[in-house]
C-alpha cells in the first residue's frame, strides 16, 4: 500500500483547466509532488530530467500526443516502466485499444470524478494510504 504522498506524478494536458482539475483531485488524494506539462514534448523532456512514478496524460495534445508520449516513455529504458494513465475526451474504443497495445496501465474518461481518479490509480498501484 503505497502512500500517495510518496508517488511523484506528471500531469500532461494542453488545457490548464484539466491540469488544475487533475492536480486538485490528486492533492485531495494526498499526492504532493505533482508536475505539469502543456504538451507531450514538454512532458517527455521533464520526465527525462525528473522521472516520476505516475504519468497522467491527455490523449489529444499539440506537438506530441498522449499515444506517442506513451510510446516514447515505453521505449526509453530509464522511464520505461512508469505507470501511465491516459485521459481521453471521449470513450474511444479504438484509441483505448491502441493505448493498451502500447502498454497503457489504465485510462480515465473526461469528465471524471475524484472517485474514478482514485480507482484508476489504485488499479495500478494498489490501495493508497
Amino acid at each position: 500500500m503505497p502512500a500517495a504522498s510518496s508517488i511523484k506524478v506528471m500531469v500532461a494536458d494542453d488545457q490548464l483547466t484539466i491540469r488544475a482539475l487533475v492536480r486538485g483531485g490528486l492533492q485531495q488524494l494526498g499526492f504532493k509532488d505533482i508536475d505539469e506539462a502543456p504538451d507531450g514534448e514538454e512532458a517527455l523532456r521533464q520526465l527525462i530530467v525528473k522521472p516520476v512514478q505516475l504519468i497522467i496524460s491527455d490523449y489529444n495534445m499539440p506537438k506530441l500526443d498522449g499515444l506517442n508520449l506513451l510510446r516514447a516513455v515505453r521505449s526509453h529504458e530509464p522511464i520505461k516502466k512508469t505507470a501511465f494513465i491516459m485521459l481521453t475526451g471521449r470513450a474511444d474504443k479504438e484509441l483505448v485499444q491502441k493505448a493498451v497495445q502500447y502498454g497503457v496501465n489504465n485510462y480515465l474518461v473526461k469528465p471524471f470524478t475524484i472517485t474514478t481518479l482514485k480507482e484508476k490509480i489504485e488499479a495500478v498501484f494498489g490501495p493508497l494510504t
Binding site: P2, S6, P51, Q53, A83, V124, G126
Partner: peptide, 22 residues
Amino acid sequence: PPPIPQIAEPAPLDVAALIRKA
C-alpha cells in the same frame, strides 16, 4: 526520486524496482 517502500506484493507495477533500474 525516492523509492516507494510501501508498495505491497500484488502491485502491478514494481515502481521501486523501476526506480532502482533508472
